[in-house]
Nucleic acid binder design. Sequence first.
DNA 1: GCTCTGCTAAGAGGA
Length: 1110
Amino acid sequence: MNAAKRVLSPSKVENLPAQGKRYKKQIDLDTQTPPQPQEQENYDFLLDDDEDFDVSALDAAVSANPRLELSGWQRCVVRHVERLPKTHDLLLELSGEEEEAGKAVCHLQAPWNQTPIQTGDLLSLQAHWQPTLAAYAINKEHGYCVIHPDLLISSTSVTGSLFCRRKAVLQDRFRGVDSANAVMIIGTLVHELLQTVLAQRLRRKPQIEDALQGMLHSAQLAQQLYAAQLSRAEIELQLHKFVEPIVAFIAQYLEGESPAVQLPETFAGRIEQIQDIEENLWVPQMGLKGKVDVSVRVRNKKHPIPLELKTGRASFSMEHKGQLLLYQLMHSALGQETRSGLLLYLREGIMREVREGRNEQRDLILLRNELAHYLTRDAQLPATGQESVSLSLPEQPGKLLQPFELPEPISHHSACGNCAYATLCCSFASTDPQLELSESHPLRRLMPQVLSHLGQPDNEYVLHWCGLLALEEQQARQSHQLRSLWTETPARRQQQGRAIHQLELPTGHKARFQDGRFEHKLVLSAQADKDFNLNLSGFELGEYVTVSCTSRLAIAAGYITRLETRSLCVQLERDLGQRYTDESFIVDKHESQSFASFNYTNLALLLEASEKSAELRSIVVARTPPKQHKVVPRIIGSKGGPMLRPLNKVQQLAALRALTTSTHLLIKGLPGTGKTQTLVAIVRLLHLMERSVLITAQTHSAVDNLLLRLLPHNLPMLRLGNSARIHPQLLAISEAELTSNCETVDQLTQVLHKPSIVGVTCLGAGHALFQQRHFDYCIVDEATQVLQPTVLRALSHCTRFILVGDPEQLPPLVRSREARQRGADETLFQRLDCEEATAVLTLQYRMNRSITRLANELTYGQALQCASKQVENARLQLELISNSNSAWVQRALQTHLEQAVLLLDTSDCSQRCLDYAAASKQLGQTGDSIEQHYGEDRIVPTTARSRRPPKYTNYCEAAIVMHLLHQLLAAGYDARRIGVIAPYRAQVELLRQLGKDLNGVEFNTVDQYQGRDKNLIIYSCTKTGSSTDSAERSREAEILEDQRRLTVAITRAKHKLILLGDVSCLQRYTPFQRLFKHIPDRCRLHLADGRMGFSWQTLLDELNHAKRGD
DNA sequence: GCTCTGCTAAGAGGA
Ligand SMILES: Nc1ncnc2c1ncn2[C@@H]1O[C@H](COP(=O)(O)OP(=O)(O)O)[C@@H](O)[C@H]1O
């Protein structure tokens, strides 16, 4: 009863179910409070009534018709929208995110009534009760309505859009098209200097000069200068000019000395305390984020106020003031009511107070909504279904269907002419059927200039990919990774493996400052679950995370540098000790949006007027095939022998073509044909020719795989990228290691520019090094797993490129089903594949002749050939102890070459799996929890689920696998030569748990096995039974319908491949059906009770024993 | 939504 009473105590009123999901903090508004809803009074009555009330009656009362409270920030869902005829107000009927949380009606009056809102939209509102309407209202004077509140837009994007909305929208997507100039770098450094001075409480000029010197000679600055291609000398003088103004600022505002002249309008108060520096704000109430330069306490203000530093001309423009107004709103929404801010123009030594202003703040939020609208619009795509999907519009020649709507361009001759986004802006403008520019619009003059080098196919290629990327972005937004930070409790996030909560700083903790970052140790608190182990929390070393405390989201971000059972270390960009010593912290995984913008930016790169971009367009867009020089460089003839010798004829030919191609070469490496071997030779030969080589791939492991094979050859190599992701044996050539002693730009340049062979992931090719270094060759390994836009960056830094891969194996990961269906998984390899461009490696060193034959029949025609008799005839080396095994096991593990492929048919075992799960409680639970974790039905209650057959696990197959494995190991077969694969993660986890004592056997998904092999492979196909619902079947089928996955699965085994599954079920999937046609009866074994000593009961009993054994 | 890789950020200033 006590508990119930506490929940209802007035101070915890937000815990009332009637309030719905509210923001944690509320602000006190001067606005008139609405009358308490009727039900609320009932509670009071109940409360007064005392200890003995009935909680369920209370719940019933609440769900009757509670009113949703909108006078504080409230998330709500639009249930109905209507435009009122006379007033043109938008009338919204709202409910909480869960409908039972309550309802409310709100009028959006001018200027909010133009907001694009639809039924079903999620809004974040703060409204004003209007008795005359008997409803809430948001109007000119009161309230805010925020659309798409889970999209946090940065304050500078909002203020930036004051000048040109179109640019702001482009900038948000194509981040990084405009590179920072010297003035901006100086600006950044002056910020750092002032922040250092304030953090360290430096007061006197000599101290400040020392701080500047320290900064100028830091390794961190060298990195920044290297990236900006500036020398220390170039910036030193500029920075010095700011020392005097900083001294004056400190004297007046921190020391309280009167200035020589006090200009009118300047801030006359005093800063009493520096509260925070670079405070990070994420405010989902307003859909905004931002970083406050400095938060300061001043006299007569209850809460700290933001201070914004500018190093340019003192314009007092709305762009600058707007930043402060937004920070004020954000602080207020977080419960620190803030009505003022300080705008400091350091160069001119002027600081003014910027006070709150309803009109400006309202308009900024309206502007923010406008940006949110453009950034979340569903991509517009051509109808699919016809032969060729084209963006061209028959009625409007020259125009193309635009994937996303953009704001209209401003009309400003000089600004448009100098805008970094001009090409992009014009490319969209020139093809946009909706856009009508006036005769005198500056873009009309600009367009022919900035677009003269582009043809319509170029525009079309870029727009096509923009559309596909937009679909991926949409998908990412919907998967609500980010929003869970404010919509789910920390405990729930921890459960899902996304977060670790109940962390604290150890007493007396001091952050260690290193390389411009603060290393913190966080320890699980005494309240945390005693059995919780951080090593099993789903977090990894090197992972990028945010740190929140219970009252504030994302106060810092950084990398995990250490993980122990009960503690972890994170390198953050700020020191938590300053302000948050006694807080309880939550660490969350952070998936940034940077992939999307990396890809968009690469498309923009393709449109540039540079020679390199023209070359890329001619290859990538126009698909111009390469020319082959006939003459091999002399040095290869004289010294290339040792490098070519380890290659077979086909590999040698590919290598020589790589050296002599005019622009590019594709190497199609069928399974086991020695791709890496060939690449090693190519890199060594190129090195012999004194050519520089950039080695790249989508994944770290693929990059490292090649570098590791090159390591013994003592070539000059550098590996760029996050050290935590790099193979330990390559750390010696990692960027971090090689540059660890560099303190100057020259030293950095020395180290980074010397090695002629550089390895980096495709996304890592955004590294600053590539602004300065161009490479002769780019080698893209596993090129059939990289999205087209992703690979462009690396290619743009090299003269020639070689793509290596196998389009018959698994494609790149595309999350959006629609993007996939529209061809987002078509890689550059496929696009450029043609006879002139492609060398095929056909001699394989992996599979014996039976397995090779099957692979040819399913996928490779007759292309795949065994490289030698030895490969062709390699058999499983196994001697079973004959009498201790039943006949079916003997048969299944036959070593005869003609039995190298075996299909074990379980028939429909769905009911058996179900019965087994029900009977064996313990195992049933294991499977249940695995299905729950990896399967799709995350929200189905356990009781309902266990009555249905599991979809992604199969006990019967697991039992057979375990039995076979035990027999193999008992016969002395080397566990490390055995691989067990399955299409689903859930089945893999089940197998792993059951086989955890079988050391050495590798269990993994087919996807993860790409590129690997084993002597013996068992493929547990998992799917069984007959699914009646055809719609469901087609939706689920994608994994099994993909022939590329099946191709990978059957080409992993060297000596023996055991396919295990329900043949009649699998036959419904086209690739399996085709495969089975080529498996003769003598290679099939039907498993049924009593046949060849087979017994389900025995096998399933064994599972129980195995389980009990631990 | 089964398979599941990548990576710092918001703001540096100026029409
Ligand atoms: N030319 C060759 N001669 C002999 N063996 C080879 C040759 N090329 C490749 N192999 C064998 O094939 C195996 C796989 O080669 P690798 O280059 O790692 O293949 P991939 O990169 O295609 O997976 C190697 O272990 C090697 O023994």
